Amino acid sequence: MLAKAVPQVPAPESVEGGLSYEPKWDGFRALIYADGDGTTVDTVEIGSRGSKMLTRYFPELVDAFQRLLPGPCVLDGEIVVPTGPAGKQRLDWEALSQRIHPAASRVKLLAEQTPATFVAFDLLAVGGESLLEHSFGERRARLEEFAGALPAPIELTRTTTDVELARKWLVEFEGAGLDGVVAKPLASPYAPNKRTMLKIKHHRTADVVALGYRVHTSGRGVGSLLVGLYDDDGELRNVGGVSAFSDARRLELVDELAPLVELDDSGDAVKGATERSRFSSGKDVTFIRLRPERVLEVRYDQMEGMRFRHTAQFERWRPDREARSCTFEQLDRPIAYDLADVLR
């Protein structure tokens, strides 16, 4: 079951039957398939939204499900990794992404050093009973009855029908690393692959410097722009990419950016390479370097360390801005918020 992006938290009366609101967790969406006999759980499989099996990467969660679940079930939720000292915990996307590793020894070590938490937000089946045709309001009540008293690392996401509280969550919970708010129709059955839920994320703008571009996978045009910001030491740092250009726009950008392409002594374009990650394995990470002179405005949702958490969206060119004026100081930083207060 998927979510459709909307610009603001909708009023409950905008949907027949009303809405339930909950935090939007920034982790790995996961379906938990727990099988067994009666009140015992013998086998557990963890599947991603795209049906990729994640079971081997989270042995500590498999153990917890086997020990703590009161019986066979199918749970829908999010795998997250909290880090930080007590009172200042927040979600850590980098620590979570490191768990997808081919070496079992590395997975075991990380499971001990940065253990994951599963935040449940839906119950799709319990025992031999499918709940897919039940309304979300009924499924949530069954989820609380089934798993509401379970200890960590299994948590139930909090919910509310108070739209003003949900709007407050949208602002406050970002400080703990959360991604926004989700609104769910209380009267709707579970609809796989349908965007019946509504998601509200943070949207901000920033002026950044174009520092390079990658050629599109087709071999023609600009696939994505690499952009940067100047730090306190005056160093231009790569903060992410901008993509989603149309076919025609990709070809236009090649011509527009041609005067900025850095050339070597032989007249060839200078190339660079971004750091390779486990998610870029096999992908071309080289890019055409540009002289850092052109400024563009982008839309982004949040930062992860010194980079945009997700790919930014092109808004407009800013010929009125000097590249050196594009610094990290312009970014809107959320007020810190303890993750434990979100889970309570």
Rank of each mutant, 00 (worst) to 15 (best):
S224M: 01
D264A: 09
E138T: 15
A166Q: 12
V227T: 12
D255E: 15
D231H: 09
L263C: 04
P189M: 12
F136T: 10
V254R: 10
K184E: 05
L260G: 09
G234A: 02
R195F: 01
S224G: 02
T157V: 11
G267P: 15
R214S: 13
K184F: 05
W169R: 03
E138P: 05
T157A: 15
V222G: 04
T159E: 05
R167T: 04
G219M: 00
H134Q: 09
L257Q: 07
T196P: 00
E174K: 10
V208E: 11
D232W: 09
R142S: 00
E256S: 13
A206W: 05
R167V: 04
S243Y: 02
D207Y: 02
A187F: 01
A183E: 01
N193M: 14
A166C: 12
G240H: 12
E256H: 13
I154M: 11
A149W: 08
F136D: 11
H134A: 07
V181F: 07
E164P: 01
T159K: 01
G128N: 13
M197A: 11
G240S: 11
V254S: 08
G267C: 06
S266G: 15
D265W: 00
V222F: 03
S246L: 08
I200H: 01
S246V: 08
A258H: 05
T159H: 12
